[in-house]
Design a protein around this nucleic acid. Structure first.
Length: 251
DNA sequence: TAGGCCATCTGGTCCT
DNA sequence: AGGACCAGATGGCCTA
């Protein structure tokens, strides 16, 4: 196909297409033209070729050239539509906690969707947990009438970040997996945006493992100041989420 | 070589 | 009527 010829080895899902200039060298289009010349249908066993409806009849009245132009236009629109879809898919891949790069195989579409779903579930549970912790902190504050006793004086972090900042490293030190969890990133991130996968320059875990078990996101995940850590050690998924996941992956 | 993934073409259907 | 959306078919590339 022309798209395969124009794409590089990493199988971009949104290949740069010079549609108008290259399309007429397309084998499929040449076959299409040849078929139209000979009057032979391109696919003799199409179940939908029975062709009923006003549009089909109207097309029968068109000249060969008009029909060809119409086909090219429709094909081009469909191609653009699929490219837009692939662009959106690429955008989704960019925000997934998964390594990217020339040496890393790109997530397939189905994998991207499944991983995105798990990621959303995980972030949701992180948010719920954070809300609970913040509520606990403020509850303690109101009882003791003194925030300074609750918050360490040297801490400059906002109260909403404290639970995660203090919990995550301690959790990881308990398990002793600090080699895989780099403590501090060297690049500042927006506090409310998820870490882009491009920033997470770690080797990708085996894809099937990651997809089958969202808890395995812990292997090789970094902690970000002020961000909920989605790794399994910091944020174990609730049982309901796990069951949901197993349902979706049962296939 | 089989199977997975993908891009593209194509006709039908639905919507504006 | 035209465009968007969808699903089936087809063929190419890549990997185990």
């Amino acid at each position: 196909m022309d798209s395969d010829a124009s794409s590089t080895c990493s199988r971009s899902s949104s290949p740069e297409l010079a549609v108008d200039s290259s399309f007429f060298s397309n084998k499929m289009f040449q076959a299409y033209c040849a078929d139209r010349e000979t009057g032979q249908p391109r696919s003799e066993k199409s179940p939908q070729s029975a062709g009923s409806g006003g549009k089909t009849r109207a097309r029968a009245d068109l000249s060969k050239d008009d029909l060809q132009d119409l086909r090219l236009k429709v094909n081009s629109r469909e191609r653009k539509r699929m490219h837009d879809l692939n662009q959106a898919m690429d955008g989704l891949r960019e925000v997934m906690p998964y390594a990217q790069g020339p040496s890393v195989r790109k997530l397939s579409k189905i994998s991207t969707l499944l991983l995105a779903r798990n990621y959303i579930l995980m972030l949701s549970s992180s948010l719920e947990e954070m809300k609970k912790l913040v509520g606990d902190v403020y509850g303690a504050n109101s009882q003791s009438h003194s925030a300074r006793r609750v918050l360490p004086p040297a801490s400059a972090a906002p109260a909403s970040q404290l639970p995660l900042l203090s919990l995550a490293p301690s959790l990881h030190s308990l398990v002793g997996s600090t080699s895989q969890h780099t403590s501090t990133p060297t690049v500042a991130h927006a506090p409310h945006s998820p870490p882009s996968a491009a920033y997470l320059g770690f080797p990708a875990p085996p894809l099937p493992t990651l997809l089958k078990d969202p808890l395995h996101l812990s292997s090789g995940y970094r902690h970000f100041p002020g961000m909920p850590c989605p790794c399994s050690l910091c944020q174990p998924l609730p049982a309901s989420t796990a069951s949901l996941h197993s349902l979706s992956m049962g296939k």
